[in-house]
Each structure stands twice: as structure tokens, then as C-alpha cells.
Design a protein around this nucleic acid. Structure first.
Lengths: 231, 231
DNA sequence: GTATAATTGTGAATTTATGAACAAATTATA
DNA sequence: TATAATTTGTTCATAAATTCACAATTATAC
């Protein structure tokens, strides 16, 4: 009923609106939000419509109640817990950025197969043995698992997470894990993302240089296709 | 003409095919690749068609030439360079994972405003002062900039990158930067990603519990909407 | 008050992405 | 050599996401 894209945008709206509120702003219009996100105003209105919140014609949306509507929609009444598997460089970075400061989704435990890490606390988060995975997940009532491990172990760890009752996985490993369709998976594949940016950067460069050439040579003939971008 | 989604999938195909090749596999059929990625065979065939590479009816695609076609399509003839801005936890993790081992897109330099970091080398990558940004980018002929800094400085650093001739930005900061449309931007927004996974994990859980309840109570009446997922 | 200008909410149109289905092609087999 | 079985390339159909465009509504100016 509600799409992933909409959820992502709502989360973004919230972050921006929170910032605007501390700056003292009280209302906002769809085209202002749209400009900040580089999307169209109609998209903003549609998203907000889905919350059931109504704006005021000719004056926009009142920020405070709009934020309440978003929170009401996105957040759980109770705080939710997540666990992190893999305390390598990436895992540490995630802990550093999100361990404490996360209202809704607290990372409550970390796991690593390296015995040297087990028992230690990283950025306020205790690291357990992989053997304790199921026990800790059940105890902390965690619903989300974050996979920050190399591809090799990803499927077996994913299976473990699912068995332990996890219902969402954020997968930073390069492997496309298989899960039952009662579990939500989000793949964040940094390798392919790099390749994508590299590819389009190169294309953009070529395109710009072609345009320059055309201008320098004053040739109007010869139509060029425009590029597909995400702007 | 070619979509971002297709580029992402081609990059994925490549990684999987490289693995299969070292395992000794010579040919692959669209449905095999499709199963590994949890997509439909028609999608695989369509993507490969766009490369201009043709498979063989009743026997599939020959892996080696297919890999060549993908490389030919995705990669630049010359290796390309990228720079990283922000050597915090996340920046370090990116360097650790991608600094050396990246065929196509080498991270050639890092920048940080912390004087304590400038002059040091992290995972084989030298850290420079922000003041040297433009100079180093021009010298290394870098076309991609990776932003791994907090939101506050993101826009001004982005402007600097663009001025210095960067044509693609991989933005890990929570700010939606504004760039001319001759520059490609990919946002990797970990906060919203967390929120999204958390949201759908909760929904999945509810859905599963509802289903259980329905089964336990043998009620066939009362239709429930199915969830929108990315499986 | 009334008129004017501006903004929302939303149906319709458009664009983009995915999926189904089948002819054409190729191999394997009898 | 001919027949059967299978997989590709591609067209047509469907679904999802976005954008347009405009009536309805509200604030503001006069």
C-alpha cells in the first residue's frame, strides 16, 4: 500500500523539518520542501496526503503537527532494537555514527567471529560471540539485523538471523541473500554503487565535453540524446 | 538511454560471473543468473541485450565473452581516479574496503579538515589538507568525489569538488546537495535507510503475526492487503 | 465584504520499470 | 535427416512511479 520510495522521502522530510523547526520556522509549503529535495511539489503533497495530514490552502503545512504525523506513521510506539553482525571497519563506522544517537532503532548488540573482539565494547555497544546470536536477539527483542561482513558468511548468518526472529535485514555484504518473504531485506552494495557513480561520472564528462565542442564549432545540426540522470 | 537500475544490475552480473568463472563454469543461462539475484530471467536477457552481446539459444551465454562485453560497457579504457573527503569512521571504512583493491576506480587521495590527520596515510591513501583539494584533484585527474562528512559542510565541499572538475559525487552525508546537472550525484543516506528497514521490519512482523492469528482462528473472511516489498 | 492571488488535494496523463509470452534459433536425439 | 526440447531476443501487456493540471479552498488586500 505504501511504497519504499515514499517511506524514504518521509524520513527525509522529517529530518529537514526538524532542522527548520529549530530554526524557528512554523509552516512550510510543498514547493519549498520540493526544492530542498530536488523533487516536484506534487510529489511532496502526495506523500503527505498518504499520512492523512492536511495542509492549509494558500498557507502550506504547519510544521509541528506535520512532524507529529510523520512520527506517528514511521515510528513504533515502543523503541525498537537492532543488532550488528561484523565489527570490521564498516561495522565500527556504523556503530560510531548510529549506536547511541538513534531514537527509534537502537543498535543493542554486536557480534563478531574474532575472539579478540568478543567481550569488548565498541562505541557503547557490547560485542558478543556468534554463538550467542540467537540468545541475545531474543533477549533484546531485536527485529533488525545489520550485516557488515564479507560475502562468504552472509547467507549462513542471514539464515541464523531469520531463525532468531529478525524481520528486517540491512545487508552491506556484496551477496544477495535469500530470505523468506516474511523478512524485509535492504541491500546496500557499495561496490556496485561505486561502479555506478564512476560510470555516470564518465558519461557526464563526455557529454559536457561534447556540448563544449558543439558550442565552439557553432554546429546546431546533429542532435544528441540527453542522458538519463537522477537529478 | 540506459537506466541506473540496469547499470547496477550489470555490475552485479559481473561480480557473480567472475566468481562463477573461477569456479570453472563456462556458460550460464538467464534463469540461473536471475535466480541468484532474485529477479526474472526476462530482466537478465533484456539487460544483456543492451550490451549488444548475444547468447546462444538453447545453451545460454558464454561467460568469458559476456564478461568482456560488460567490462567494455561499464569500464573506462583508462583507469579512473576518485578522491575521498572526510577521514572519519566512515571514510576510514571506505578506504579499508576499497582503497587498494579497486580495479576501475582508485581512491587516489583523501582530505580532512583535521590537521592531525593531514600528512598521514590511511590504508595506503595519503590525507591532504582541504586547501589542497583543487590542486590534488586536478593533478590526479579525479572524476569522482566521495563525501563522507557530516551534513553541515557538504554543500560547500560539493561546490569545491564541482569547481575542481569532478563529474560524479557519491554523497554519504545526510544533506541533499545541489549540483549543476552536468554532475551525477548518488545519495547513500544511512539514516533514512535504517528508518526504512526498521519500518518494514515492523510491518513484516505485524503481517506475519496477523497471518498466524488468522490460521489459528481458521477465519477465511476478512481480506488483508498484501505488503509492498522488494523481494 | 469582495476580489485577487496563492496553495492544496487529487484525478488523469505520462513516463519508467517489470513481467508474460511467443516466434526464431539452436542443440540434442532418435 | 527430421523431430523434439530448450533458450534466446523481443514484442506486447501490466504495474509502479512520477508529473501535470485544475477545481476547491483559504488568506490577503483593498
Amino acid at each position: 500500500m505504501i511504497s519504499e520510495k515514499t517511506i524514504e522521502r518521509l524520513s527525509l522530510y522529517r529530518r529537514i523539518l526538524q532542522q527548520l523547526r529549530v530554526e524557528g520556522k512554523e509552516t512550510i509549503m510543498s514547493h519549498e520542501l520540493a526544492d530542498l529535495l530536488h523533487i516536484k511539489p506534487a510529489q511532496v503533497r502526495r506523500d503527505i496526503m498518504q499520512l492523512g495530514y492536511s495542509g492549509i490552502p494558500n498557507s502550506g503545512y504547519r510544521i509541528r503537527p506535520l512532524l507529529e504525523s510523520i512520527a506517528n506513521f514511521l515510528d513504533s510506539p515502543l523503541p525498537q532494537s537492532a543488532v550488528l553482525v561484523g565489527v570490521g571497519h564498516l561495522g565500527l563506522a556504523l556503530l560510531a555514527n548510529f549506536a547511541g544517537r538513534w531514537r527509534q532503532l537502537a543498535i543493542r548488540a554486536a557480534f563478531d567471529k574474532d575472539p579478540a573482539k568478543v567481550g569488548h565494547t565498541f562505541h557503547g555497544c557490547r560485542c558478543y560471540s556468534m554463538l550467542d546470536l540467537q540468545k541475545v536477539i531474543v533477549e533484546t527483542k531485536s527485529i533488525v539485523g545489520i550485516l557488515a561482513i564479507p560475502g562468504e558468511g552472509a547467507q549462513s548468518v542471514s539464515d541464523l538471523l531469520v531463525q532468531s526472529g529478525i524481520s528486517g535485514i540491512l545487508n552491506f555484504s556484496p551477496l544477495r541473500i535469500k530470505v523468506p518473504n516474511s523478512v524485509f531485506v535492504e541491500h546496500v552494495d557499495l561496490s556496485t554503487t561505486f561502479e555506478k557513480v564512476s560510470f555516470f561520472a564518465r558519461r557526464m564528462k563526455h557529454y559536457v565535453e561534447e556540448e563544449k565542442w558543439k558550442i565552439e564549432h557553432e554546429t546546431d545540426e546533429g542532435e544528441y540524446e540527453t542522458l538519463t540522470t537522477n537529478q
